[in-house]
Design a protein around this nucleic acid. Sequence first.
DNA 1: CAGCTAATTCATCACCTGATGAATTACAAG
DNA 2: CTTGTAATTCATCAGGTGATGAATTAGCTG
Lengths: 216, 216
Amino acid sequence: MKAQDPAGGPPRPGTSTPRRGRRGGTTGSREDILEAARMLFAEHGFEGTSLRQVARAAGVDPGMIHHFFTGKDELFALSVELPADPEQVLAGVADTDPATRAELIVRTVLRLWESPAQAGLLAFLRGTIGSKAKTALLREIVARRVISRIMASVPGTPEEVALRGSLVATQVVGLMMVRYVVRLEPLASAAPEDVVRLTAPNVQRYLTGPLGQEPI
Amino acid sequence: MKAQDPAGGPPRPGTSTPRRGRRGGTTGSREDILEAARMLFAEHGFEGTSLRQVARAAGVDPGMIHHFFTGKDELFALSVELPADPEQVLAGVADTDPATRAELIVRTVLRLWESPAQAGLLAFLRGTIGSKAKTALLREIVARRVISRIMASVPGTPEEVALRGSLVATQVVGLMMVRYVVRLEPLASAAPEDVVRLTAPNVQRYLTGPLGQEPI
DNA sequence: CAGCTAATTCATCACCTGATGAATTACAAG
DNA sequence: CTTGTAATTCATCAGGTGATGAATTAGCTG
């Protein structure tokens, strides 16, 4: 994020008049805009972020945004689109033994959220949960692309597997919310290894464990 | 909610001119505004809801909002404030035996969310998660007022109890998100009894069960 | 060099936002 | 009836919003 360019800033709009026209060299303005948008959407959601804020954070004229993107919607979609799509992230999960799959699931979720994709994921969640209309999109993604992979070859009737899938979602979504969105301590700063050890058993119970009785 | 008056055009000055001045009888405009605000904040979050939308949905002139409330912030705070504060909702939870408390916790959460408070809770979540600044408020509420009650008299070192508390939050928050916000099926329409039976064991494990090993 | 294309700034538009203040009307108390 | 107070509408403000189009400049291709 090469935002405000403190030192020798030629594009300082306050001081040395930033004359018009193309700049020399490779000015990655498009990427700067995307990066600034990702940060701001992650902090304030879709409606809480204005294009002028994005332009300012990117050190760029507001008009540039409309030069590179058709509008705010496209900017949001491109800046926030999942850096790795579910199919790719979950590759391999479907191949493991369901009886020991929970650990891999939690590990995959943690690896994804500890990666640079975190800002985009936060932005996606913030922009998506803030509006009822957009939660439908989130629901479709989770239902059709994530859960189907996670529940592959889990034994049981289709109804039972679907129920187990939404229960798994319960634990995984809760982990993401508490650790990365609300950042509740001490879980927010716990070591990933510990998080796996602590939560995977419950995920495993939802996956293949007994549902109608006490597990202990 | 006497909303948008679908048949005849609302702003038709030809027909039923809404002349100025006070209306006859008891017109609960203040309550109408609060109710409409609750609905809209729940659907579109804080920034995604304009005062003019609220006024239209309440069948009221936009100026009324500023007559009854000092501004958008106060309207949000009053319309969305938790209908029952955590102390009251969780009364009794702290008195039960920790070894069997999970069922009561899940039951309490479900009862709260199935009640009329749901709209307010949704609004609170939507308005709160959409902004990084406001999630701090949510974090404080959860940490100081909710978890402390839930974890009362749970045995263990303070560090361990705090960790168990955030793990409980994991499962409870995930349940709320999946069932009431994202509305993922089949969990979204499952009977409360079934939800209790399915999720309480995992909550109980976080509360008092073994953490470092497989629970089954 | 000329000519094209892309990057950048600027001025501006139409609209929506939250907010204010005055004018009008009803109800209640004296 | 008079007076005051609260409820309601209206007109309007200053500012922010997303978006458009023209003007300017740089780099690339021939």
